[in-house]
């Protein structure tokens, strides 16, 4: 309460209180607590200009930051909604509706095709703000569609993950997305196309334990939480304090699970370079199995 809300008459208040500017002009960095002006934060791809902390980047901004102009998103394949008629404190059908209204997305993933630094790519990016980026049938089906599109376009498949894991409201159907997305990866690999995973904060559970750990190359953003089990579950199970930096991108890099920890600003160049190297035309010709049988040295030699 202040003098304005207390004493100014309602009509004047609406006049005075009218907002033609966004709510949050200033953001506080959750790591260093520095206040950052929203335009500067957007320009910096939601990385704190003071300490370099990578905040979560919404899926649409991610695509715009990564792909060259002219990329297009595809319509996600339709799947039966709420197959279990699941209801916890809210109905799953209502949760879906609310998430759709809030995010203007169909589900927790967007699939786009175009180029990254001139290299052809199909990009499947998770939307963490849609039910925690959880993976149900729609997400699994979108990844299968992305894989098929990559094969069709002879493009690399890039998966950018941000997910709490399986979508519990779809029960065992969400569990089945682990083999289903693994099949999607197999389709791309068999076509001889690169499959690169970009792990962002957070990537856990069934998403990590399927397609996200099957990349030809694993890239992770600095500080991203990446793991199978949640930290709380582990703490309750082993009853000891978790080590410093546990399940962070750098930790996975040290433990051999992630190739590169790349800052967000470097991501486009890193991906473009990797796709370029892996799809070198001459090398691809050499890798293709030929009818010619390789001459092996005979037993009598040497």
């Amino acid at each position: 309460m202040n003098w304005l809300t207390n004493y100014v008459r309602p009509k004047i208040r609406t006049l005075l209180g009218r907002k033609d500017v966004p709510d949050n002009l200033w953001h506080k960095c959750p790591a260093c607590e520095q206040m950052i002006f929203h335009l500067e934060l957007a320009k910096n791809l939601r990385v704190c200009p003071n300490c370099g902390h990578h905040m979560r980047l919404p899926a649409k901004e991610r695509l715009a930051s990564l792909m060259d102009e002219g990329f297009a998103t595809i319509e996600l394949p339709a799947v039966p909604a709420d197959p279990l008629h699941f209801r916890d404190q809210k109905r799953y059908a209502d949760r879906l509706k609310a998430a759709r209204a809030e995010t203007e997305l169909d589900d927790a993933i967007i699939v786009a095709h175009g180029t990254i630094g001139g290299q052809r790519a199909v990009v499947a990016v998770f939307a963490f703000d849609f039910m925690g980026g959880s993976m149900g049938t729609a997400v699994g089906e979108a990844l299968v569609a992305a894989a098929k599109l990559a094969v069709l376009q002879e493009a690399a498949l890039i998966a950018i993950t941000a997910s709490g894991g399986a979508r519990m409201q779809e029960g065992a159907l969400s569990l089945m997305q682990m083999p289903r997305t693994t099949i999607a990866v197999q389709i791309v690999k068999e076509a001889g196309l690169p499959y690169i995973v970009v792990l962002t904060d957070p990537t856990t559970g069934g998403v990590t334990a399927s397609f996200a750990m099957l990349g030809d190359i694993h890239v992770a953003e600095p500080g991203a939480m990446i793991g199978f089990a949640g930290a709380r579950v582990i703490e309750q199970t082993v009853r000891e304090k978790l080590p410093e930096g546990f399940q962070r991108a750098e930790y996975l890099n040290e433990h051999g699970m992630v190739d590169i920890v790349a800052r967000r600003a470097e991501l486009r160049d890193t991906l473009s370079r990797l796709i370029g190297l892996l799809t070198e035309p001459a090398a691809r010709r050499a890798a293709r199995p030929s009818a010619e049988v390789l001459a092996l040295p005979g037993i009598s030699e040497g």
Binding site: M178, P179, T182, V185, Q186, T208, A209, S210, F211, A212, M213, L214, G227, F228, A229, G230, V233, I234, T237, V238, E240, L242, P243, F246, Q247, H255, G256, M257
Partner: peptide, 21 residues
């Protein structure tokens, strides 16, 4: 799967993914 520090350190998620594969 076992939710432990050692399991995570040695790549629990990757091991499961490869088994499915």
């Amino acid at each position: 799967a076992y939710p432990g520090i050692d399991a995570e350190a040695r790549g629990q998620a990757e091991a499961i993914a490869r088994a499915i594969e």
